[in-house]
Amino acid sequence: MAESREHTFTGVRGLNTVREWPNDEPRYVVILIHGYGEHIGRYEHVADRLVRHGAAVYGLDHVGHGRSEGDRVLIEDFEDVVTDVHAVEERARADHPGVPVVAIGHSMGGMIAARYAQRYGTGLAALVLSGPVIGEWEVLPALLALEEIPDIPIDPATLSRDPAVGAAYAADPLVWHGPFKRATLEAFATTLTAIAKGGTFGALPTLWVHGEDDQLVPLGPSRGGIDAVRGTDLTERIYPGARHEVFNEVNKDEVLDDVTAFVDRALAGR
């Protein structure tokens, strides 16, 4: 695996931890944006593949996640998280002036990346959305309608057809295994509305990857959300039988091949 290092910076709501997978002469920079309840350390193999493809990779643990400060999984405003991600991009640009930047976000991170593209997309060379929470996320109104949020953890079996992925997730002490926080769910709803009203991605090359059998963020409602914001350059890859975490699926090499081929095309078109 590629070597990595960590640093911290003061984000909008506290001290955030960032992991870097360096590359002395990168062809491009990747900003990795992780999903709900997890942390950037679960993307070691993704970063390794991207470094070998020519990238320098950066990713933060969002507020309340992983090694960053904050009440666990409490995000009161995703605009603050977008601002924190932009601070990481600014650090990456300072390290690698003039190098094109690609944003890659998974699940909640896909939602954050979509909003990021609306706010800062003019500075991006490409955007990758993996199983993004976008459009209508049916679990959201159902949970918010309840008087008390049930303490039902995510079923690890919904992540991947590879049982080792679920086992590692269940045993990971940096993963949150408790209930949603109501304020976080309300922030999800606010952000999905903001994305729907925020305009398209324009000419930004965008790759949407999704598992056909994604039970956590079902394909159909996400398609509606993608259609609302897609610009003039959208590529989609739907993987038959794949579950939520396509970067951790049994065909993850195929998925990462698709990502790197897409990045090559986007960079060649600049």
Score class of each variant (00 low, 15 high):
V12W: 04
F247C: 02
V139W: 03
G105D: 02
F201A: 06
H244S: 06
I134T: 00
R19C: 08
F9N: 01
R13S: 14
L140T: 05
G105F: 07
H210Q: 03
R13M: 10
E89G: 11
A266T: 09
H65W: 10
P141N: 09
N248T: 02
D213V: 00
D257K: 11
L140P: 01
Q118K: 15
G11M: 04
Y43E: 05
G220E: 15
I40E: 02
L159P: 13
F78R: 08
A168M: 05
E186V: 13
Y43K: 02
A203I: 00
S222V: 02
P141D: 15
L174M: 03
L129A: 04
V229D: 08
V229P: 04
R91A: 10
A47I: 01
A2T: 15
Y169W: 12
Y43N: 10
L146C: 02
G135T: 11
R265E: 03
D257C: 01
F188H: 04
V51H: 09
V250T: 14
V255L: 12
G59M: 11
R42F: 00
D233H: 06
E138V: 10
R19D: 12
V63E: 08
G269Y: 04
F201W: 07
V133D: 01
D151Y: 02
E236D: 06
G220T: 14
V101L: 12
T206G: 03
T158Y: 02
F247R: 01
V63P: 04
V99L: 01
K181M: 12
D257F: 01
Y36T: 12
H62Y: 13
V85P: 10
A142D: 15
A142N: 14
M111A: 15
G131Q: 11
F262E: 02
I40M: 03
T232A: 15
P22D: 04
A268K: 06
N251M: 08
G59W: 00
A170G: 09
R243Q: 01
T122M: 07
E138L: 13
D77K: 11
R265A: 02
G225M: 07
H86W: 00
I75N: 06
A268P: 07
Y120M: 14
L267K: 13
A242M: 04
L140V: 15
R27T: 04
A2C: 13
H7Q: 11
G241K: 04
G211L: 12
T184P: 08
A55H: 13
G66N: 08
A103M: 05
G225Q: 00
R230P: 02
